[in-house]
Each structure stands twice: as structure tokens, then as C-alpha cells.
Amino acid sequence: MLSKKSILSVDDLDTGEIMQVLESADSFMDISRREIKKVPTLRGKTVASLFFEPSTRTRISFEIAAKRLSADIVNFSAQASSLLKGETIMDTLRTILSMQVDLLVIRHRDSGTVKLMDSVVNVPVINAGDGKHQHPTQALLDIYTIKNHFNRLEGLKVALVGDYINSRVARSCQSLFEKMGLEVTIVAPAMLLPEDWSGFKVEHSIDRIIEDTDILYMLRMQFERQDRKLYPSVREYNRYLSLDMKRLSRMKKDSVVMHPGPVNRGIEIYDEIMELAKEKGNNILIDEQVTAGVAVRMALLYLVLGQS
């Protein structure tokens, strides 16, 4: 039972609710491992996923999650660039609601738009990412992945590395991780940080934290969301912020590497490490994050919809 109708931001969930999501995700993880990966929990419910920004993994992850719960899911994607006036998105929304859907999963290129759309509909909404604002399901699947790996959360040291300013993942993770007792350090140069970072623990180079961090969380360099090219070059990025084999070898024995995907190979993470990630027994959790994504989204769909 969640207190809010919709999940628009990680702040919409209190600690108890987050634990509830993680526990439900555990049981949905089991279902995904079965031969018959389907339960009738949401039979007869219709979920519409509206993507006003290109996405592969999040959209597919929600789709698989809904299908494993026996909900019917329909996908609508539109390039936001083809919708010049917001009037059009509101019209699209009205059209889809008229078809009596039970839940909306929405992604939009512009910050705040999912909240705007939520404010005019009666059905619950799950934010699948809005602009540079929030991506709550990503942060939840990340915390689930971390908890699964370490069997604890309190006191773990996590470094969010790279393009903080343009990243909704960074904002969501920072807030959720801190709420769950992790120690968060942001590793970024001045132009990829907000004007005032006085409330954050900040380092400017990955070398400053590499030996001490439990979780090295690499942020995707958001070239598509950079309003103006401020970072000088990839070479400069590699110098201070990328993960190569040398840096990987300096990490603590039981530490892990995470990335929300898709990885810009050779920028955040070097090719050789991505190749290493395919082998068993490594501490690169990128694939585990994707797997957890389905279970966590099943849990959210169930908690938001299954009990209504």
C-alpha cells in the first residue's frame, strides 16, 4: 500500500515504502527465474506507456514487467521534437485516457512534464524519466541491486561519477541513496555540477575516491542534453573521470561498478572493461541492474495498481 497515487519522484516514497518495494521485488525476481514467467496478478488491467523521448531499456523493461503480471500494455512513442506545442501532448493524453487505461508510464524529454500530466489525470502515473529532473524507477532498481549484492545499505560509500548537472539518474540516486543511509560523493568538474554544490560532498577526479569507494556509479555523459558543449574533450574526460583497467585494479576487493546504461564505451567506461563484464564472477553489475529493473518495475506496478 503506497500513500501516493503516483510515483513521480523518489521523494514520493518514504523509507518504509521503499523497503516494501524492495521486498516485493525479491518475490518478483523469483517469478522471473521460473519456467513460466507469468502470474495473473494484474489480469484485466491496461497499462499505457507513453514515451515522448527515445528509450529502449526502460520501455522494454516496463513492458516485460507488465506482461509478467498479465496486464495488457500498449506503447506510444513520439519524438518530442515533432510535438511543437504542448497542447498536442495534452490532447494525446486525453485520447489515451478515453480508452480507459488503468495506469500510465510516462517518459518526457522536458523536466516537470510527467508531473504536469499527472495533475490532469485520475489514474496513477509512474515517471519513467522526465528531462533532467527524476527517474525514480532507475534509482529504485539501483538500490535493489546494491542491497542484493552487499546484503546491507547503511554506511556504504557510493561515488556518482560524471555528468551530474544533466542527469535525472544522478538526482534520483543521490536523494534515494542518502535516504537509505549510503554516503554519496559526487565526482564531477565544475561545469558538470550545479552552480551551488555546497550541500554536496564533491571531488573532481575519480582518482580521489577510487580506492575507498564501495560502489563506483558511472553516470552516462549526456551529450544529447548538453545545452552547450562545455567539456573540452573526451581525452580530458578520460584523464579525470573514466574507468580504465588501471583504475579498476585499484578498487577495493569487494567493491562494484554500476552504470544506468547505455554506456558510452571509451568515455565513462573503457571497452576492455565492458568486455570483462561479460565474464562470470566480476564485480561489474550493469547486467544485474537491468535484470533487477524488471523485478522492481513489477513490484511498483503491483503496489500501485494491484491493490487498487
Partner: peptide
């Protein structure tokens, strides 16, 4: 530039260009 609101604590949190 493409700013939408005052740059500060709230623009950072809301992900709106400052």
C-alpha cells in the same frame, strides 16, 4: 542560454535549466 528559472538550489533539484 536555454535557462528556464533562477539558477540555484531549486533549479538543481527540479532539473530545470538555470
Amino acid at each position: 542560454g536555454p535557462g528556464l528559472m533562477h539558477e540555484g538550489e531549486f533549479s538543481t533539484r527540479l532539473g530545470l535549466e538555470g
